[in-house]
Design a protein around this nucleic acid. Structure first.
Lengths: 194, 194
DNA sequence: CAAATAAGTGGACTGGTTGCACTTTTTAAC
DNA sequence: GTTAAAAAGTGCAACCAGTCCACTTATTTG
């Protein structure tokens, strides 16, 4: 019956508080819009002090992106664990299609997506959530290629791949968009047809 | 003798005030570090009210990047005005080498560069100063190629080019770094030698 | 000179974020 | 089992960036 053993009451209560805050925040944001809700409003709605709120979330933006899974591990795994013979770019292409596309197109999250798209501060934050992993991904790529960790081309490739979510956010056909960008990365710029 | 004719006293005083604020800000930032200086400190040092300060500069970060020339015009001109037969990527490569490299390597600005490199808020701001022009550059590229303005590959190329300053900031050999990144954009990813 | 216009002032205010000293709850050790 | 350490939470004051507003002062223009 237990989902996981020996999870102390403390941890459970902590998680509950965190969840209460995140829920209150999302509800209020969707109701009123991001910048018509203050941190104090959220704390009040969740019945905690603002001090407590900031012990669970480092910033107002972070309240929106609760469930920030470990993208980094996934990215590195995609590079390291790819089948023999597959190129790095191809592996990343598949990974992005599998991990980013669902997020971009999930119909249940329409309200959430609208919230982000209509709030510059959140767009920036979301963008940084990805590009923050440039160093880690770049290191994985450099290791794989057997070159120095600070190799600029590896760093550039990492950065460009992590730009993709921002580039394709709000697009009508994100899948094609992702494919075309990877084409650019794989083969270089060619004046597009049409 | 006049640098420009009919410059009223008003305009001159305004420019002087602006300069006094920017000077005070840079001096204090270099002395104490960016986040140990408050807006009020700067206003006081320049002997103006904070209200006045914000009439000249929209944010604290903007105080550091006084003299924000019009990069956008230069970027678009580089695409539109390039010699016949030259590719867009090649034109942008030349433009970046001419416009960004001097900034990155100017020895007189060592203190300034250190300030930016040691302050995350300023790095982000500088980055956004460039990527802000993604839409404009992307449009120029798309026009040039005769495709729709929102073509995703054009947008990606524009974005990637504008990432270059952030990618190469603080590098030992920025010129080579820029060249190698443009190689990636021109020909696609190839596992780097060595 | 008399508006009209623009620059600057001062001070109060909002909203995100931090610090501090304190209480309560949970856990772990004896 | 009692107790002490560790963690979660509280309340409040404070800081700082940025905005608002009503007001004064200087410059321009007709």
């Amino acid at each position: 019956m237990d989902t996981s053993p020996v999870v102390g009451r403390r941890e459970r209560k902590k998680a509950a508080t965190r969840q209460a805050i995140a829920d209150a925040a999302l509800r209020l944001f969707l109701e009123r819009g991001y910048d018509r809700v203050s941190i104090r409003d959220i704390a009040e709605a969740a019945d905690v002090s603002t001090t407590t709120l900031f012990k669970h979330f480092p910033s107002k933006e972070a309240l929106v992106f609760d469930r920030d899974e470990d993208r980094e591990a996934g990215l590195i795994a995609a590079v390291r664990g790819r089948p023999a013979g597959q190129s790095v770019v191809e592996a990343l292409r598949r990974h992005v299609l599998e991990s980013w596309l669902p997020v971009a197109t999930h119909p249940l999250r329409a309200g959430f997506t609208d919230l982000v798209d209509s709030t510059p501060a959140l767009q920036e934050y979301a963008e940084r959530m990805w590009t923050r992993h440039t160093a880690a991904l770049s290191t994985a790529i450099a290791d794989d290629a057997g070159v120095s960790h600070d190799n600029i081309v590896c760093r550039a490739l990492a950065r460009f791949v992590l730009d993709i979510p921002a580039l394709t956010r709000g697009r009508q056909d994100p899948r094609t968009a992702v494919e075309e960008i990877f084409d650019l990365l794989a083969h270089g710029w060619r004046p597009p047809g049409r």
